[in-house]
Design a protein around this nucleic acid. Sequence first.
DNA 1: CGAATACTTGAGTTAAACTCACGCCATGCC
DNA 2: GGCATGGCGTGAGTTTAACTCAAGTATTCG
Lengths: 296, 296
Amino acid sequence: MPDRDLPSLNAMRAFEAAARLGSMSLAAHELHVTHGAVSRQVRTLEEALGQPLFTRQGRGVVLTTTGQQLRELCSAAFGQLRDGWLQLRNAQASAACVLGCSGSVLARWVIPRLERLRHDLPALTLHLAVQEEPVADHLANVDAALLLAAPPWPAGWQVHELAPERIGPVLSPRYPGADRLREQPACALCDEPLLHPASRPQAWPEWARAMGLPAESLRQAQALPHLYFLLEAAAAGLGVAIAPQPLVADDLASGRLLAPWGFCETSARWALVSARRDDARLAALADWLHRELAET
Amino acid sequence: MPDRDLPSLNAMRAFEAAARLGSMSLAAHELHVTHGAVSRQVRTLEEALGQPLFTRQGRGVVLTTTGQQLRELCSAAFGQLRDGWLQLRNAQASAACVLGCSGSVLARWVIPRLERLRHDLPALTLHLAVQEEPVADHLANVDAALLLAAPPWPAGWQVHELAPERIGPVLSPRYPGADRLREQPACALCDEPLLHPASRPQAWPEWARAMGLPAESLRQAQALPHLYFLLEAAAAGLGVAIAPQPLVADDLASGRLLAPWGFCETSARWALVSARRDDARLAALADWLHRELAET
DNA sequence: CGAATACTTGAGTTAAACTCACGCCATGCC
DNA sequence: GGCATGGCGTGAGTTTAACTCAAGTATTCG
């Protein structure tokens, strides 16, 4: 006995459907169960109430007087619940969602895909905010942040891991010696001026380690304050840069940049993180980001 | 997913209790489950809604704004359901219940116990109706009938079997030769004038068979139209009657009748039968009758 | 700082709910 | 009448949602 004063709510839902549709079988179909299940639930309810709700007459069922009263009661209560529930859901689903991410990611990946995002998730109203790392301090100002970082994640964050990070060297076809370099193995880069992001001095050594090259042999020539400038510099033919694959995917496709040695995974992850749990908008957004990152 | 538009009702009930009491643990206690169970249900609900309902702060929980709205919604809906449900239950529980039974049973068993019944089941308003067998034709006029009959029961009846019937010979201490007879084995009755009920000529042979006596050896002297008259005749010392044990229990206790050879079971049963299913009043009445019959 | 309190969470278990398959009954059609 | 059809009831077996248990975390209080 769940409660002496209140019967099984699931049984009531089954009854309400059966009463509304005038048939156990139709109700069963609506609830995606078999007619036997509905039959049993209704029977349970009748036993709990102490009187029949339907009169069975061979083919079909008809509500008793008591059944009609209970039907009205259930319809009203469940209708109220559903309306209120949907209202609460929609209120938040339609609220704007502020997404923070670094300028580089924003400019080179998010913005080019905004139109597609609007098309795929029309219900989502997205606002964008530039947010350089460390993100932790700014997480309170946004609903979520799209970032590249390595686990473990700070406690209390809600994290949707989207994809492993893959980085690799890129250079412009206009770079002097580009034609020569692209034919050679990765170790040829030891002799080239390497551009690296100031925010991430470990990028080249990480890559070298993954490729089996001695990290010391690399010559980091020029640091640039943002990945965005780094890539612009590389595109301008100033040197060889290193970048996450999705950020250069468009340039690779257009031939503006080359990646002769491909990309390799690091320990970092693309992730959508937020301070608040249980935001359905973010779940949908994470799902979309996951698919979009996997596509390139 | 039970339904896209309506979340788990059980989760809502758990949430409502937790919100009302301001504590998962207290809600768990109210619902007779562990606090872990409530925690999970609330979590399920939060995930379905896509936003948190409580803010957890170490010790204790507090409702979010959304949580407060959902709490009001749930309280209203569940309150409505409970009130309506109880009203439907009570409406029928307080309606008078018409019980039919034979005049003999009524006079010699039911009426002497009416006071006790009123005391044990104060909520039951009982009306009595005399109803001689066959009962089938009259079942429509009463809510239920108390009767003695053998299975199988007609289809469509709701039957509460109460106890096996036990019958045995009874005689008055004033009966000539009572003192002699009571010391002798049952076969001594072969020589006595036996009173039998017109409505049930098989009573004596049935008893004889159960006792291992040849049925033919019995001499049925006098038929009387009702068990009631039969027992009055026996009490007046006119002969030896045969009767169900409960109907003479009071007379045996007072010494007005003797049953020197005890009682033995027949294939018949005391039963409370009705045409309607699922009447909580009858379930309670059957339970009381069962206990009362077992007591003698 | 340790004890106490309250929620969370992962693993394993249980009881409710479901499916399946068959039976029954009424209706309608040949 | 005989037979097919549609709908409900029910017993047996199985699935699954919900639960318990136990360990973990965070906060408060003496």
